[in-house]
Computed example of a mutant assay.
Amino acid sequence: MSSDASPGPRSRRERPAKPALSREAIVDAGLDVLRREGLGALSMRRVATALDTGPASLYVYVANRDELHALLFDAAIATIAVEETDPARWREQLHGLAGRMLRMMVEDFPGIAIMGMAAIPTGENAMRLTESMMSLLRAGGVPDQALAYAPDLVSMYITAIAYEQALYQELYADPAHEQREIERLLERFRTLPADRYPTMASVAALMTRGTGDERFGLGLDIIVNGLLATPTDGRLSEGCPPD
């Protein structure tokens, strides 16, 4: 009789012990799913599978999917570096911060931008980022009422650009698609009938000018310049929306 018989099933005692389940482990696993597979793959079941457990086990630490999303978004924000405000470089620092926010949502965690659009982030890391942004804008001279609204306006702009870019990457995997789209737009704007679209025709050559980074920076400056220049005193009643 051969002595090479295959061994039977391993006892549970012989298997490596699973890492202890915790809120931190759930967040780490969720971020890993986001990073590797994108937002579409993220679910309580998928995170549970990554942790080698069942979905019910996660609910001991996370109330529901909305709380999971909030925890993941705040943890992703923690990866964004902030600098001590230098009043002499406030605009440069603001552009740097906005660029890091954009890269986090587009490159590091594709698709996560929609989490920032679905709810207002209020975690500790979001507060750290907001404090830095407001400190930079105050150093630039943005008045208090405009400053109070600034994080919402600036973050909404950055998040919308990030979501657009992530969606574009998801829909058009072909690198050549972007160049074809630019060429299509150039041709369309170049041939606009001036009698029907006189304003657009007059600036047609300018409408596709600049790289994505340049256009992003220009949009940010337009918002900041508006915050600096738009009077707010007497425009809003306390506790009431504007007319």
Rank of each mutant, 00 (worst) to 15 (best):
E24C: 00
M115V: 10
P193F: 05
S3V: 12
L185E: 09
R45P: 01
T199L: 14
S6L: 14
N225D: 15
P241S: 13
L227E: 07
R215M: 09
D66K: 15
A20Q: 03
S237K: 13
L71N: 04
P231A: 11
K18D: 04
L220C: 08
S202I: 01
T130W: 06
L94N: 02
R13Y: 12
A63S: 13
K18G: 00
N64K: 05
D174T: 04
L21Q: 02
N225Y: 11
L68P: 05
T49D: 14
S57V: 01
V62D: 01
A166T: 13
Y149C: 13
L192V: 04
L171V: 10
P7V: 11
D174A: 08
I120F: 12
A20R: 08
A201I: 04
Y168W: 13
R100P: 06
A76P: 03
L129G: 02
T85M: 01
Y168K: 12
L171H: 13
L186Y: 01
D213Q: 14
M115I: 08
L68K: 00
M127Q: 15
N64H: 11
V33W: 01
D213F: 07
A98D: 01
T49L: 14
N225G: 09
L51T: 00
I182D: 12
A17K: 12
L147C: 07
V82F: 08
Q169V: 09
M200N: 05
S6I: 12
I223W: 01
L192F: 05
P198S: 08
T49W: 04
D66Y: 12
P143V: 08
I77P: 00
D66C: 04
L68G: 03
A126Y: 03
M207L: 14
L42E: 03
L39E: 11
D108V: 05
P193N: 03
A160I: 10
A204W: 02
T122I: 07
S135K: 09
T232E: 11
A166P: 01
G38A: 10
E83W: 06
Y157V: 08
L147E: 02
D144N: 09
L97P: 03
D213S: 13
G210P: 07
R188E: 10
S11E: 09
L192K: 04
L51E: 04
S132M: 05
L185N: 08
E170V: 04
L129T: 09
T230K: 10
L185G: 01
V60G: 07
M156R: 15
G40Q: 10
E67A: 10
M207A: 08
A63F: 06
A139S: 14
L58N: 01
V82L: 05
